Amino acid sequence: MTSKSLRWWQGGVLVAVFVAWHLLSRNEQTAFFIGEPIKVAGRIWSWFLPVEVAPNALFPEGLPGRADIYVHLGITLLETVLAFFFGTVLGLVFGLWLALAPMASAILDPYIKALNSMPRVILAPIFALWFGLGIWSKVALAVTLVFFIVFFNVYQGVREVSPVILANARMLGANRRQLLRTVYLPSATSWVFSSLHTSVGLAFVGAVVGEYLGSARGVGYLILQAEGTFDVNTVFAGIVVLTAFALALDALVGRIERRLMKWQPRQGEAEKL
């Protein structure tokens, strides 16, 4: 299947989903639970384009012209980016350290497993108590989600370095710092980028859940307010907006990965070799 035909099939699936959603939402009772795609699109329009829509047959209540979504979305994106950055850096540092320090790894292993198995959402009230209801309590919660994904991937990537490569590097006189720069980090790089694609989504999850549990700004706050009034269309509009921006960040990570991983052959090229 060519890339162009694949795109057509993917677009066809999306269109089919929206058509099925529209047909199901024609029943008023069903629409109360699943929303209406046209009204969801109208809500997104009213968020991003501050143009008031007068009441009509499609939107009996009209659409208010307001652009406050930029403030809420900016807060959520800031929390996500900060959590993604700090979680990635901490996961990379601790993953490298414990992978290269067997004694420390053996001592801390049960505690790391215990922290990883803990439902991190229950930490949200504690972070709110420590950091207040501002952005840092949401960042802290999201960091706990990102950290372990990056940490375990880096740890595994370093531990799986070929002993033959290490032996050859040591024979050539490489010291510990040179081994870290030329052997361990390149080995862990592919593992790191594979974890970053998952981490982007988890950073969004942590930020939105934190806003959901206690906040006065952010897309999670908008969704919570909409749920309080049973406005399912606004809930779905918030979900669509968050999904779109999460995909955009994931695509940015993918572009950075392709630039930094030029030395690694693509899947098709590897099969030819």
Rank of each mutant, 00 (worst) to 15 (best):
D68Q: 11
A140V: 08
L100Q: 10
K4F: 13
G11P: 07
A57P: 00
P55C: 05
R181T: 09
N116D: 10
L252N: 05
L14R: 07
E257P: 10
A216L: 15
R255I: 11
R159W: 02
G210L: 02
Q156F: 07
I256W: 11
R7M: 10
L185M: 09
S190D: 08
L100T: 15
E257N: 14
W45M: 11
L249V: 00
A54I: 12
V93I: 15
L23D: 00
A124T: 04
L273D: 08
P50V: 08
V71N: 11
S199M: 07
I75P: 03
L260V: 15
S105G: 14
V40Q: 04
K4Q: 13
G42A: 06
I126W: 13
S5C: 07
T80W: 01
D68A: 09
A142R: 00
W21L: 04
R177P: 03
F84L: 15
L222R: 10
G214E: 02
R159P: 04
L222K: 09
P110G: 07
Q10R: 15
F85M: 14
L63H: 00
F59Y: 10
Y111T: 08
G201K: 02
V154G: 02
I126V: 15
R255F: 12
V253W: 02
A270E: 13
N168P: 08
V51F: 14
L145M: 14
I122Y: 12
E52M: 10
A246R: 06
